[in-house]
């Protein structure tokens, strides 16, 4: 027990002292996972909207694929991205392996299904009458679509939080394609692995506390959105 308490106390001291090694790693994590989620939105929202609003043969399979994407094991994504970016791979020319670009690429693959799946659920939850009414009132096709997405915006923000929470806490993919290089590609999760292995429990604990705080913030946000959503909908459907 003493080990745990000591580590926690030293961890807090380290965080408060503004340790540049720690905060540099935290900033890099936020940058990598933030970029990945932003790019994931660009990919996931169109896919989710399209699957949510159209009917076509094979749509069921497409939806199942998106939902499978939620359970993609990060190490498998890491393996594929590694092989694609390695010198013998098709994208070896880019020279991305062991850079933050490779880490962002892997995390986009992990984040996009979250965004797509939640967008899909969100646009389906908006009553279709809304769009029909808007069209009847003279809105163009794209205007009606935008209105539809506006109604689903809270859920879309939850998609951002869920995707972010998922990628910032994964370790397998970023370790494999980033290489955990000090000052370059070391992020919170890979640093926790290394510092624990080196017996630097205080440093590992400090990073762990930050990661927990980020995960808590993301999930608190999602919960708030989920609690707020039904109350907002009632006047619309009546």
């Amino acid at each position: 027990m003493d080990v745990l308490v000591d580590a926690a106390r030293q961890a807090l001291a380290l965080l408060l002292s503004g340790d540049p090694y720690l905060w540099g790693i935290i900033a890099r994590s936020l940058q990598v996972s933030g970029s990945a989620v932003a790019l994931g939105l660009l990919v996931g929202i169109p896919i989710g909207t399209w699957l949510g609003l159209t009917r076509f043969p094979g749509r069921g399979i497409a939806v199942a694929l998106v939902n499978t994407g939620l359970a993609l094991p990060p190490v498998v994504v890491g393996l594929f991205v590694y092989l694609l970016l390695s010198r013998q791979g098709p994208f070896g020319e880019l020279g991305w392996l062991y850079t933050t670009s490779a880490m962002i690429a892997a995390q986009v693959v992990l984040a996009a299904p979250y965004v797509a799946a939640i967008t899909l659920a969100a646009v389906q939850a908006v009553p279709p009458e809304l769009r029909l009414q808007a069209r009847a009132l003279g809105a163009g096709r794209w205007q009606a679509l935008l209105l539809h997405l506006r109604e689903a915006r809270l859920s879309l923000m939850a998609a951002v939080a869920a995707g972010f929470g998922a990628v910032i806490s994964e370790v397998g993919a970023v370790m494999m394609v980033g290489g955990n290089v000090h000052g370059e590609t070391r992020v919170i999760t890979t640093a926790i692995v290394l510092e624990t292995r080196r017996g630097q429990f205080a440093t590992a604990m400090a990073l762990g506390l930050i990661l927990l705080a980020i995960a808590f913030a993301a999930n608190a946000f999602i919960t708030r959105v989920q609690q707020a959503a039904p109350r907002r909908r009632r006047p619309l459907t009546s």
């Binding site: 392996l97 062991y98 290489g179 955990n180 000090h182 370059e184």
Partner: peptide, 18 residues
Amino acid sequence: YLEAGQGMGAVLMMASEM
């Protein structure tokens, strides 16, 4: 000078790629 913080096999693969 890069510090990888990984095992020997991983570091050799990195050196080869880079």
